[in-house]
Design a protein around this nucleic acid. Sequence first.
DNA 1: ATATTTCATTCACCTATGTTAATGAAATAC
DNA 2: GTATTTCATTAACATAGGTGAATGAAATAT
Lengths: 191, 191
Amino acid sequence: MKYPTLYQAFRKYINLSPEAYLDLENRLVHKTLDKKEFLIKEGQVIRYLPFIHKGLMVNYRLDDEGEKHVIQIRWAGLWLGDLYSFFSGAPTKFNIRTYQPTELLMINHETFDFITEKHPIYEKYFRLSIQNAYIATLNQIFNLHSSSAEARYLELIKNVPELLNDIPHYLIASYLSIKPQSLSRIRKNYK
Amino acid sequence: MKYPTLYQAFRKYINLSPEAYLDLENRLVHKTLDKKEFLIKEGQVIRYLPFIHKGLMVNYRLDDEGEKHVIQIRWAGLWLGDLYSFFSGAPTKFNIRTYQPTELLMINHETFDFITEKHPIYEKYFRLSIQNAYIATLNQIFNLHSSSAEARYLELIKNVPELLNDIPHYLIASYLSIKPQSLSRIRKNYK
DNA sequence: ATATTTCATTCACCTATGTTAATGAAATAC
DNA sequence: GTATTTCATTAACATAGGTGAATGAAATAT
């Protein structure tokens, strides 16, 4: 078993036999990304479901003025990417890239079809996975509605303290939906 | 065929035979809600997937101070409710209620299991349905990040002009993540 | 029909966050 | 190793949206 992190990710939601896991592991595409590299750019059709083995990735969209808006920050142990584009074949509106060297384990369509057919339990896993991604975004909307930028910042660094060292602060600001100057102002109160 | 609206909703994403549709139709629970009635309250476990046949419904969460935050407004032709709670059995954090007389067509677990087993195409439909709900919430986050309250208001009434007559304005304000007074201020500019 | 409650609106004032500009430190490119 | 670019921070000022209070209209209850 080369990737116990991945096995644990499955075991969190389903009871997966080591054999069924190995059927997948043998077909994974291992991809290494440098610091500051793109995985996905707007307009592309997503051909892989990527799992973050090491490192972290940032998902942002561009508005009409070309400004970045960070929608998701995902780290080791999580899936990411545009499930919608992967399953529907529609071009994505997202840009997904690294700011730290990152290793991904990726599943392509052929592998997805193979393992879900051979082991239907994987189907359940991915439905649960979408469901959880969905509920997480509903929570994110609720937080944007109900908490101040300061409260969202404190919550974020409580959950993921290492984030401040792993990506530029202006991306954290964007994720919190404020400007870098405002993030600095908030941070000044906690020194 | 008693509910062509529902059939059309399926046909939007999948190729469903009338026979397969009728297998479901016979098992639907038809529910009529008065003006101002609750379908779901926080803490309950969701036992139905509701489709809005006529009318519209509002989904909100309460924050620590007990203030409502409207997360979704859904109208005829759409599914709603907490798919997560329905599938996982976890108690919901949402409150879902009417502000207009509304008719629902509901699927319980038994019916869901029956029709997805007999017609696996339904399984695909509900996966697509979750996917679309997920992508819609990601868009909602992007809009909260990138558009002013005024722009979000104009966009909303462009898409759903009748909303202003169908639910109290303070709920529209909440959905836009502003206060009723601010919504009034914005509306004053467009008279 | 009358009383009560709910709701939309307005206003004056307040506050959180945005904007513009400047500075130095750190990272990167040459 | 030096030049250049990127980034975080600060400050002064601007603005969108919040707050609290008042008013009248509409909806609801009695």
